[in-house]
Nucleic acid binder design. Sequence first.
DNA 1: CCCTGCCATAAGTTTTGCTAATGCCAAAGC
DNA 2: GCTTTGGCATTAGCAAAACTTATGGCAGGG
Lengths: 292, 292
Amino acid sequence: MRNPLPPLGWLRTFEAAARHLSFTGAARDLNMTQSAVSQQIKSLEGYLGQPLFHRRPRALELTEAGITYLPVVREAFRTLVRGTQAVTGQQENTVQVQCNITFSVNWLAPRLPAFRALHPDVHLNIFTELWEPREMAEGAAVEIRYSLRPADTVRTELLRSDHYYPVCAPDYPVTLETLQQQPLYDCSNLLSNWASWAEDQGLTWDNPQITYATTYMVGLSVAMAGGGLCLAHDTIARRLLDEGRLIAPFAHRAPMPEAYYLLLSPQAEETPGAVAFANWIRAEIAAEQNPA
Amino acid sequence: MRNPLPPLGWLRTFEAAARHLSFTGAARDLNMTQSAVSQQIKSLEGYLGQPLFHRRPRALELTEAGITYLPVVREAFRTLVRGTQAVTGQQENTVQVQCNITFSVNWLAPRLPAFRALHPDVHLNIFTELWEPREMAEGAAVEIRYSLRPADTVRTELLRSDHYYPVCAPDYPVTLETLQQQPLYDCSNLLSNWASWAEDQGLTWDNPQITYATTYMVGLSVAMAGGGLCLAHDTIARRLLDEGRLIAPFAHRAPMPEAYYLLLSPQAEETPGAVAFANWIRAEIAAEQNPA
DNA sequence: CCCTGCCATAAGTTTTGCTAATGCCAAAGC
DNA sequence: GCTTTGGCATTAGCAAAACTTATGGCAGGG
C-alpha cells in the first residue's frame, strides 16, 4: 500500500520536463543529469500506473494523463511556494540577482539608490560569487551575464554590447611604443583581451606577459593605483573615467564579442519584483547609451 | 541558493505533527520513529529559517509561522492527492479496507453483494494480510480490528463485542469429559482462549496441547472436516452454524475481552466511499445484534 | 551512410532518510 | 524531595534512494 503522494522531487522534475518537453532541457534547468530525469519520470509513471509522456524522436509529447496532471502539480507548487515564501519572509518582492562583482560594484551599486527610490517595496539580493556558467545561476531570478551569447534555454536578451580599451591612472606615463613593457592586467577566459585589442588596430603584439584575475576588479584597482594598465569597457569603467580616477590613454576601442545579457528564470516572469527590476535595468542601460 | 520547495516528506511530517501536536503521535501515524520526525521537523525549520513548533514539556504548540503554514500545506496536499488520484484512476470511491481473513471470508464476503447493491459506485479493496498492530493498518482508509480496545489514536469505535465457544462438525463425538483429549485448535495471541473459556465456567483445565494458527480459518476448516474442535464466536461462525456445517456442542459462552472495532483513518472521513462503508457496516452489525 | 540529439538502462557512488540508543528536561506520582 | 515517566533532541551507523557516468538504441538530418 503506497504513500498517497509521490516524492515532490519527481513532480518538480515532471513539471520541468513538461515545460521543456525535453528531459535534457529539464536536466539543465534542474542541475541534474538527463539520466536522473529519465529515471525519475520513469518512477513517477510507474507510481501513477501510466505514462505522462509519449517519447518521439527528438521530442516529447504529453499524454492525456500528463496534460491532466500538469496544472494540478503547478497549482500545488504555487500554493506551496507562496506559502513557503510567506513563512520564510521571502516576499515576492525579494529578487535574487546574480551578476559579476565588477558589474555589481562599478555599475549596479551606484545606481541602486535610484532603483530603490523608484521601487521602495522591491528588495534585491545581489549575488556576485563566481559561478559555473549554467543555463541560469542556481537560485537566481535574474542574471546579468557578461559573456558570449548564451544558449536560448532561458529567456535571454541582449542588454548591451560594448567596446574595450586600456585604462590607467591619469598621470601614468605610457605610449603605444612602451605599452608592451608595462604591467598589463586582464580578466581571464575572455575573447576581448590584449592580443585581440592590438590585432583590431593592426598593432604588432609581442605577447608580453599578462597578469590575469578572475575579475576585472583586481586590474582596475591596480590601474587606479598607478600600477599598470588594465583592459576595460564603458559598462564597468565609464564612471571611473568621468570621475578622473582612470583615463583611456589610447583612442582605439575594439568591439567586444562578449556582451551583457539579461537572463530571466521561468519563475521571474511571475514575480513582480523581478519584472520591475528587469524593466528598470533595460531602461537604465538604454538611457545610458542614448542620452537625451 | 536553495530549491524553492522543501522535500514533500518533511511537509507530510509537519502536517502530521501539527495534527497530533506530538512528534510521537506523528511518528505512529507515519510509521516512522519519533527520532525521524524530530529530525525532519528540524530540517524543515532550518529550511524555513524559523520554528514551526514551540516545544513545551509534554506538549507541542504551533508557532505563528506554523499556524500560517499548515493550511497552505494541507491545501497543496489536497490538490496533489486529488490530482494524483485522478491520474491513477484511484477514485475517491475506492476504499481500502483492512480486516483479518476470517472476518473477511466468513462475515464480510457473504454480505458484499448487499453492500454493492446499495452502493454500486463504491469500490472496496479488501486487505487481509497479517499486519503489525499499528495505530492504523498502513494504507487503509478503514480497518476492522479484532483485538483488545485499541488506543484512541485514530477514530475508534466499538462495532461489536461477542461471546466465544467451541465448535465442531455436527457428528463429532465429544463431551465435556472427553473434550481435553480431542484435537483442539485456536487462534494465537488472544485472551479469549481455551483456558479462559474453561475457567469461565469453572472447568478444571489440564492444559492439553493446543494447535495454534495465526487465523481462525485453519481451525474452523479442521473442525468442519471433523478433525477436532476450534474456538469460535458468532461474528465468524454464525453462518456456519446456521448452515449446519458446524455445531456448538456446549452451551457455555464466555464473554470475550477482544471485540471488533471500526478504525477510521483521518482521510477516510473525507472520502464518501469510506463514509458509506463505515455507515453500512455499523448498520449491518447493529441489525445482526438486534433483529427486528 | 554517417553524424547527431535525445531517451533508456546498468552499474557504481554519493547522499539522504531512517533506526537504535541515549541524553535531557520538566511534569507527574509517591 | 525523590523517582518515574513521557516526550523531544542528538549522535552514530546502516540501508535505501538519488544521482552520475558510461553506454546503447533509435530516428532525424546532412
